[in-house]
């Protein structure tokens, strides 16, 4: 082990050695990480620019307030907190794997790499649940033609615009077709009224919808929201997914040793 102090006045740039005192692979890994930072930075700054350029934006606490197993309870931030802690935990296990590697302890590297891989997979699982929840979760929204509809969160449309006042809802219900009214009534969980919605007349549906304590209507939200949300979290998911694959390869190579 040649642990020596850095000689003072070392001429790092005279050639014959790395001016960064690091291997080629390590320097290139840092340049890759820098390019990764610029890629995600560009995504987020683009998102910020668009968000600054419009008068209203979706409220993230309204967009996502669910947690698996807690039904329709309003739990803003809960699920993203879990995902954040999964990421912190898996970064610790990765550092510990590197630490075991420095000590040349192959069993330790194996153990911590498996934990890191599981953390990455747990994060991806959470993201799959989150996307499914948004893509399939339908909310009542007022379209630009003044009618109401049930709208999921996709790259084309979302129900996260500004709040619609009760009198505007009443007017919009009159413009809404029977099929849409039946669909809206079916999404409201007000017990008996949900049965047999297609057999009810438009007037009956409207009064059932307006009687529901869960009736909450937004305008359709900023159109760019879905593209940014799914685009940026999608790229992040791809970043985690490729990390998991590379970690599996490293785990396998560590297990088999030099071939």
């Amino acid at each position: 082990m040649s642990t020596t102090a850095i000689p003072t006045n070392t001429k790092w740039w005279n050639g014959g050695r790395s001016p960064f005192n690091a291997s080629y692979g390590k320097v290139m890994m840092w340049y890759f990480l820098m390019s990764d930072a610029f890629t995600f930075g560009a995504f987020l700054i683009s998102y910020g620019t668009i968000r600054f350029s419009v008068n209203s934006w979706a409220d993230p606490n309204q967009v996502f307030n669910a947690f698996p197993g807690f039904g329709h309870q309003n739990l803003p931030l809960a699920f993203v907190s879990l995902m954040t802690f999964i990421l912190i935990f898996s970064s610790v296990t990765m550092v510990l794997a590197v630490h075991e590697g420095h000590k040349m302890n192959r069993k330790g590297v194996e153990k911590y790499m498996i934990l890191t891989i599981l953390g990455g997979l747990a994060f991806l699982g959470c993201q799959a649940w989150e996307w499914t929840h948004l893509l399939t979760g339908e909310h009542i929204a007022m379209l630009s033609d003044g009618t109401l509809s049930v709208v999921p969160t996709t790259v084309k449309m979302n129900p996260w615009g500004t709040h619609v006042a009760p009198d505007a809802i009443a007017a919009a219900l009159q413009n809404t077709s029977h099929d849409k009214l039946a669909e809206i009534a079916a999404t409201l969980h007000n017990g008996g009224a949900a049965h047999n919605v297609s057999a009810m007349s438009s007037a009956e549906l409207i009064s059932a919808i307006q009687a529901s304590p869960e009736l909450h209507v937004n305008h359709t939200g900023p159109i760019a929201f879905g593209g940014y949300f799914f685009g940026i979290t999608g790229f992040h998911g791809f970043h985690v997914f490729s990390g998991v694959i590379i970690n599996v390869v490293m785990w396998a190579k560590n297990k088999t040793g030099p071939l």
Binding site: S2, I6, R17, S18, N21, A22, S23
Partner: peptide
């Protein structure tokens, strides 16, 4: 390319 190693 590496002239000194980090202390473990």
């Amino acid at each position: 390319e590496i002239t000194f190693a980090h202390a473990p």
